[in-house]
Computed example of a mutant assay.
Amino acid sequence: MKIIPAIDIIGGQCVRLTKGAYNTKKVYSSNPLEVAKMFADKGFRYLHLVDLDGAKQGTPVNLSILESIASKTNLEIDYGGGLRTELSVSMVFDAGASAVTAGSVAVKNPTEVCSWLGRWGSSRIIIGADVIDGKLATEGWCSVENVDIINFISTYLSYGATQFICTDISRDGMLAGSALDLYARLLAEFNKIDLVASGGVASIKEVRELKKIGVCGAIVGKAIYEGMLDIDQLTMEV
């Protein structure tokens, strides 16, 4: 199972939110590159980089940070936030991302995302499913759509997608455990998807439980920054 540390960016700073609310922003570093280098030095191979400014504005904002991390580390970066057009995806790939996560646009404009899947393939286009009470949230989690998670994933499987990041917003940044029941239900329903768990991961035990139920990866953020997860122990799970 992949252990994927997260860096969320607002105003050029490394931050974390609670339940996706921008007014809960807590700054952990003013130098995201140094944080990324630390992850790389500790042996992590992957990075989940979220442009929260971009998510709010509807276009990538922090491409210079992506370019810096991509050029100065060996991390494989998936980038999300503000992707709405094929041009924006091209810009993100040109800046060094290995893959992109299609979040709001996957809910609101599936035709556009289908074109991305056709051009770049399912290995580089990850579908982001940000969930609250079984429904999909968009626009930096500021809006909840009447779209059911099961139907959403089923539709994208028919379009050729294979990779999904599922975040339970109610748990994100709460350090109270991830949505094990939700992930188990999704994997029981769709046994051929590559599912990455995100939101609430707070202990090594939980990382092992996620691995046991069959997720292919786990994104870890606040628990690292708050010192609840020992990074050296975490890298042993990679």
Rank of each mutant, 00 (worst) to 15 (best):
G121Y: 10
S104W: 05
N23L: 10
E86V: 11
S64L: 12
I224W: 01
S158Q: 10
I9G: 02
I127D: 04
I165H: 13
L175P: 01
V207N: 03
S198I: 12
L187M: 02
G128I: 12
G200Q: 03
I193D: 07
I193R: 08
V50Q: 05
F44C: 00
A129Q: 12
K42H: 01
N23I: 05
L157Y: 15
I4F: 08
V131N: 07
A129D: 15
F164N: 07
A55M: 11
K212F: 14
Y183T: 08
D51C: 03
T235N: 02
G80F: 02
I204W: 04
N151I: 14
M91H: 12
K25W: 13
I132Y: 14
I132A: 14
R45I: 09
G173P: 00
D168K: 07
A102K: 04
V238M: 11
C166W: 15
V35M: 01
M174K: 02
Y28T: 10
S88F: 15
D51K: 07
K205Y: 15
A179W: 05
V92F: 08
D148R: 15
G96T: 01
M228E: 12
R185G: 08
I165W: 13
S68H: 05
A202M: 14
T24E: 03
I231P: 00
V144P: 08
C142S: 15
S178C: 08
C216M: 13
S154D: 14
D94W: 04
L182I: 03
L49A: 02
A102G: 10
R185D: 09
V220K: 04
V27M: 05
L175G: 02
V92T: 13
G177F: 03
S88I: 14
W116F: 02
S29E: 02
L180P: 06
A188E: 14
D230E: 12
I219F: 14
L49D: 01
G128H: 13
I69D: 00
K211S: 13
K192A: 14
E34F: 00
T18K: 09
L195C: 01
